[in-house]
Write a protein that binds this DNA or RNA. Sequence first.
DNA 1: GCTGATTGTGAGATCGATCTCACATATTTA
DNA 2: TAAATATGTGAGATCGATCTCACAATCAGC
Lengths: 340, 340
Amino acid sequence: MAQKGITLKDVAAAANVSRATAARALNSYGYVGDGTALRVLEAAEKLGYRANLVAQALRSGQLPIVGFIPGDIQNPFFARIAHDIEAELRRHRHNLLIASSEENVEQEKDLLESLRSLSIRGFILAPTSATDSQHIVQLAREGTPVVLIDRVVKEVHCDSVIVDNEGGAREAVDYLVANGHERIGLLRDESRIFTAQERFAGYQNSLESHGIALDASLVSVSRSTVEHAIEATIRLFSRGDRPTALFTVDSLMTQGALLGLRSMGLSIPQDVSLVGFDDFNLATFTDPQITVIAQPTSEIGPLAAKMLLERLAGKKLAPRHTRFPTRLIVRGSVSRLHRR
Amino acid sequence: MAQKGITLKDVAAAANVSRATAARALNSYGYVGDGTALRVLEAAEKLGYRANLVAQALRSGQLPIVGFIPGDIQNPFFARIAHDIEAELRRHRHNLLIASSEENVEQEKDLLESLRSLSIRGFILAPTSATDSQHIVQLAREGTPVVLIDRVVKEVHCDSVIVDNEGGAREAVDYLVANGHERIGLLRDESRIFTAQERFAGYQNSLESHGIALDASLVSVSRSTVEHAIEATIRLFSRGDRPTALFTVDSLMTQGALLGLRSMGLSIPQDVSLVGFDDFNLATFTDPQITVIAQPTSEIGPLAAKMLLERLAGKKLAPRHTRFPTRLIVRGSVSRLHRR
DNA sequence: GCTGATTGTGAGATCGATCTCACATATTTA
DNA sequence: TAAATATGTGAGATCGATCTCACAATCAGC
């Protein structure tokens, strides 16, 4: 009935052996007589014994749990990765504890701090700040395995899995320029975030390579939410000489742009051309469908999980850094601009 | 440097007291001299002491962790709920461990079984099967707090938070009938799932109340993924006398229907009217926007978390069942059908 | 028949926090 | 002043699994 509280002691008693012997039989190590082992196994089976992982963790210092700290679990990008990590961990009998930083460094610090006392084995982390990183440095230095995804932090020496943000952004803007656009707006999020910096660099580099001067008034910064992006879009397009094209740095921004432009009565791609960073299911449901820079989302989670599991297994190597290429998916949101 | 391994013993030694006294000072219980308490607190502060939660858990039998087992964390409905639960738990210094059942009962059982030995304090669960429930009954009987969301299971006596699936589905179909539709297709998922059953009942009841005979050939069953829903849609509409309207039981099905209909060159709402269960961000980005039955997604997570926390705090009450009403949001995907 | 390895088993320590109990002093109360 | 109560502290047990060590047996070799 009350299955609670069946301990090794109970099993040992039922099999008429000591706890030590029962442990040996169950974990098959050391010397145990054949008959004895059988008795123990049978007793364990009959009683429905399951080892108390907390007690094991107290001894070993490690719970079979890995922490995942994304910016926001509601972001489909992170949700997909969370799912993939979990599936991979499950195969190795580990569990996944998810806690969103909500893009707040302080919250990220608090989370790490509080999870540390839980004896979590390792972390997969999308750091909120590219600069405020002492807490991560500290964590890694203590020997806790950490894998950074989506974003890296300069001084931290650990494995990382990111994408070619600069190259992807450059390709997006190159494509707009190739279609005759020169007044290209940018919707970006706060510079604190690593990907924002890299994607902005790509934007700059593309313009520069085409001899187009950077016009700061075409760059709109906002928090990465649909609501903020709507406002930022409206700000950007409420002027006489509005941009002819827009590049958005993530999928939430792209959604905001879509809604902002629609509310202003501007249509895509007739009035404004649009390219977004990060592919998302919505992009193929709009009319026209949205041209995007796609990330290999499905590869990030499994790779990060594998890297972490290798570290947990004790593999000692120099930090490995994987940077996946991005891919331009041309759909219908960019039109060829004919010079006036 | 190595912050690892600062235990109560270290603090006690630094403050020149016994472990017992140090514990009393830190957790403020029992008698402790003022000066002594101060010394302990200072020592703890200086050493950067953090209690080992695993050790605490071994004694108390409970880790400050709650398990969330959704059907699929990638489903925005569950992702939103996960986020809300986590935020609420954080306020009570609890963490959230997320493991998707992937709508697989066996996996759900395995997860529960393996998490049990982790001394998880309680569970928030969206059971995959409405009938195969012994594992949940067992869990609840052992005294582990459980809150069911989105779906309930008959014999299980525990708190639950669900929505009025039958009423919502009925309202959707009523609305289609009111617009002149009688050949109304249904895209539903496997009957094992509770919500599928209730929504199907709503569909049936609405038709019946309008004197429309149920035509089994208008009901298409598929797994709840976009891909499967596309196929099911194509199957349903590849016939001479195809339905004039379609009701889809969840947002993934709705997406599948959208893509399926598009691939067949059928346009909404001219050729087919559409109402979907569950509102989702994509619904307002399509042209026309999709008419849906909205669930109060933002209320489910916080309420479920609160219920669970009350149980964890020891509240003993009869199981509470909350059923939120749904709301029809009329957008542009339904057209008035003029009788031929 | 005796030393030395091989095999099998249990007593007890350990991980870290907490709690019970016993034993001091200190302070009231009768 | 004696008895009763309040206050402060430490030794040791406990939670459950695992590991070290000591101690038996059993078996081999000489």
